[in-house]
Design a protein around this nucleic acid. Structure first.
Lengths: 343, 343
DNA sequence: CAAAGTTTTCAAAGCGCTTTGGATGACAGC
DNA sequence: GCTGTCATCCAAAGCGCTTTGAAAACTTTG
């Protein structure tokens, strides 16, 4: 059933039917009711493609997901982010279109999205420190929003980020306050902007406390479980091993815990651990008392909010570009305790 | 730049330009080259919406992701499945559109996708045993493919599934062969078809070995880490505790391992564990020697293949509906060993 | 009751593409 | 020179919707 048929069935013009359904004022309440009823009855829904063509709005947002070809790793936070964003889109009547693209083909993917005109805006994932994609998107002229920031990019753009520096600074200070002096950073890849900021926070807290920055205690890799495991095994073999670990995600944190327990020690006693916790729905940090002391920030909530920032921007093209900085919550769980020397 | 402008620039008709770009024979090689060059130079890409409207093909596949409102859990395998499917779509020039929908609004979501005509086909996720959505999609008439099967649904449909029954039967027999007699099943929600089949395989192997089915050893819940933990704690408190666990996913398996090690025992010695392993890219089962003995089947590969089944079906509408059954690989890791009584 | 104003409805153009059904010209055969 | 055949190209219709500008129907007013 299309508009023409529906109009014929109702003995009305397409104009009137269209207006009735889209809530225009110049149609009487009586016919609006009649039209709505018929549309409902025949399960009529306007053809998106035709509507998009006529209005110029695709009513869809594009997400380009980088598929790092090197390690073919799908970002685990991605599912939750999408879930949050999807909720906002659904509420606004927007669709979400996904493109999974190899790193090398990304520029092409963005340009194509723009010139194919099948999305009204784009969400940029996993920004690097000086991410060329931001300049590219600005040049293309399609509204976009970044999940995170790119430190080395000048000029305005719409972003939403967790205050990674402050979160890791507070977490590090928390460990220092507990008497830890050798704190190992188990970071994500530091080409990623968020990882770089976390390291900055960690370094700042150490320096503020007059503690040295030991490069041998700073790691940066793809955040897998086994990365956490390997890092603990390696560092505990040092002559002056760390007494605490600051970890970038709950997934490597699980590996950290496994390594600690494999070595017969107990997390929160001999060795302390703080992790960042994205509050992933399928990897909750414990049931009641959190398993890990953690800097918590829901990535699902981030998705929800970033989507709304982008939608706002699309609806009000003139407005200044919105940004939002979320503070992570430092919640205390079972994985931290005083440094062993102080016991 | 649109087709009209490009045609004007080339002093050609839209027809000719369109045909040149789409590889029709009735255009001379010389002009085809000229058109291609100009299109390249001006970075011309046909407007998807207009093209879709004209051809009747949206060049997009829809995925409806159920957001179980009760536990607001995003299925962790989803990211990897999407990554695989996305690869196939990209190769075929298709987009992927995602709708995250509350359970209760699913029927509406499917009907809308169909009548809005913005996708050419739909992938159905997480089928239940007698899933009404299959009948619904058949009625709607849009091509669809199911990731998994629905045991109680009669009639043909396109699906791709892991042989869950056989996988869990073999895993159970493997444990029995090692001397285990009390084997605990840590299953997913058994309203899900895959979970039900796994239980069937487990039950079949036990009965074939003349062992009793103890309902106190059979659990079925949402597959979180803490579910695995809780289940081990609870069952090890029994007077005749299980010596082996058969787990439905690597996520609860991590909880199982944590509980075992928390109790001071060692996985693979006092207690054996086999898990199903979806080969998630961010939760690999160990580096070289697998951590867990596991029934392995890559969900990313499943995504890739299922997408291709659906695309085939769309391209050849008459053909019988394709199906595919993947066998899981039983790989031996460090989590299994002879039952303690036999040591 | 006619003129003016208001509400309600409509015909038709246009969004950017594909595709049908010619038109045009070049060339060969008679 | 005339017709027939190819190889090229084109004008125009149509996909299903929105939206403009105008007409019809109905109310109000002097």
């Amino acid at each position: 059933m299309n508009l023409k048929e529906l109009a014929a069935y109702l003995n009305l013009s397409q104009t009137t039917v269209s207006r009735a359904l889209n809530g225009f004022p110049e149609v009487s309440e009586a016919t609006r009711k009649r039209v709505a009823a018929a549309a409902e009855q025949h399960n009529y829904r306007p053809n998106t493609r035709a509507k998009a063509l006529a209005t110029g709005r695709a009513m869809a947002i594009g997400h380009v997901i980088p598929l790092s070809s090197q390690h073919e790793m799908v970002n685990p936070i991605f599912g939750d982010f999408i879930a949050g964003a999807g909720e906002s889109y659904a509420a606004a009547g927007y669709d979400m279109v996904l493109s999974l693209v190899e790193d090398s083909k990304q520029e092409k993917a963005y340009r194509e999205m723009a010139s194919k005109r099948n999305v009204d805006g784009i969400v940029l994932h996993a920004p690097r420190m000086s991410d060329p994609r931001i300049g590219l998107l600005r040049e293309i002229g399609l509204p976009f929003a970044v999940h995170g920031r790119a430190s080395d990019v000048v000029g305005d753009y719409c972003w939403l980020d967790v205050n990674n520096k402050s979160a890791f600074e507070r977490a590090t200070r928390f460990l220092i306050d507990l008497g830890h002096r050798r704190i190992c950073l188990v970071n994500g890849l530091e080409s990623m902007d968020f990882a770089w900021r976390r390291r900055a926070g960690y370094a700042y807290a150490l320096q503020a406390a007059g503690l040295p920055l030991d490069p041998a205690l700073m790691f940066a890799e793809e955040m897998t479980e086994s990365y956490g495991y390997r890092t603990v095994v390696a560092t505990q073999a040092m002559e002056d091993p760390p007494t605490a670990y600051l970890v970038s995600s709950i997934i490597p944190a699980m590996g950290v815990r496994r390594a600690i327990e494999d070595s017969g020690r107990q997390m929160g006693r001999e060795i302390s651990v703080i992790t960042h916790d994205d509050d992933l729905s399928y990897l909750r940090n414990g049931d009641e008392v959190p398993q890990f002391t953690a800097t918590v920030s829901s990535v699902q909530e981030a998705g929800r909010q970033l989507a709304n920032l982008l939608l706002d921007q699309i609806r009000n093209p003139g407005k200044p570009l919105p940004t939002r900085l979320l503070e992570a919550q430092l919640t205390v769980g079972r994985s931290t305790g005083p440094a062993p020397s102080l016991r």
